[in-house]
Amino acid sequence: MNESANTVSSTERALGESTIELRQMHKWYGEFHVLRDINLDVKSGERIVVCGPSGSGKSTMIRCINRLEEHQQGDIIVNGTELTNDLKNIEAVRREVGMVFQHFNLFPHLTVLENCTLAPIWVRKQPKAEAEAIAMKYLERVKIPEQAGKYPGQLSGGQQQRVAIARSLCMSPKVMLFDEPTSALDPEMIKEVLDVMIELAQEGMTMICVTHEMGFAKTVADRVIFMDEGQIIEENVPEEFFNNPQSERTQLFLSQILAH
C-alpha cells in the first residue's frame, strides 16, 4: 500500500470539530441486543477504521449514523443535527453523509453518469449541465470517465464500486461511510478501490470505514476501533493497535486475520 500516506497522520494534522457523536447508544433487533453502549466521537477530517469479527455490529453501527438503522437508546448527533424520528432531519443528515456499500447498490436502470447526477439534480436541485460536469470531474478522479455512458451491468465489480464512490462524492458530503467496500471484490480489483479511498483520505475527507483491509488501516487510519458482540472493545492509533493490542479478544482476532 501507499506508505507515504503515513506522513499525514493525525498527530501532524489539526483536526476540526466533532462531526459525529454517538453517546451511550444502544440498539436491539427484537430481543437481540446488537449494539451496547456505543460511544464514539469523530472529528472533522478524522479517518477511522472499524474492524471485528462478523456479527459484531460494525455495519449496524455505521448504518445508524445515516439512519438506515434506527437506534433505540442514546444520542446520535451528525453535523450538529440529532437523529430522531424527524424525517426532515434524517434527510438533511443523509445529504451530508455519503455511503458506499459492500454490494455497490448502483441503480441498474440508469447509466453511470445518471447514477451520479440523480441525487444532485433531485436533492441539491442542480442544473443538469452543472451536475453532469461535477459528475465527470469525480468520475475522472476515480479514473473511469470513459465509462460514463455505460450501464452498471456492463462494468466490473471494481469499476462499479468506484462509480459508487463517485456517486456519493457528487453530493459533496462532509463525511463518508464505507461498509466493507472491498469484501465483494476479486483480489485484483481490491487495490483499485483502495487506491481511490486512500487518495480521498489524503485529501482530508472524514471517513469511517468498516473493513478487514488491515494494510489500509495501517496506511491511513487515525484510529482503529475493534468491536465484538456489539461493544467497542478497543480503540487506538494503528501502530499501537497492531503492535500492542490490549485486550485478549483483540489479540485473538489479530492473530487470526494476520496469521497468513
Binding site: 445515516n66 438506515l68 443523509r94 456499500f101 441498474p108 436533492v123 456519493s168
Partner: peptide, 24 residues
C-alpha cells in the same frame, strides 16, 4: 439495497419509489 442507496443519497421516500424502485 436499491432503496437504501437512494435514501443514503438523501432522496426522500416518494422520490426513491418513483425514480429508483418503480422503474426497476
Amino acid at each position: 439495497g436499491q432503496t437504501e442507496a437512494s435514501m443514503a443519497l438523501g432522496l426522500p421516500r416518494n422520490r426513491t419509489l418513483n425514480l429508483v424502485v418503480i422503474p426497476q
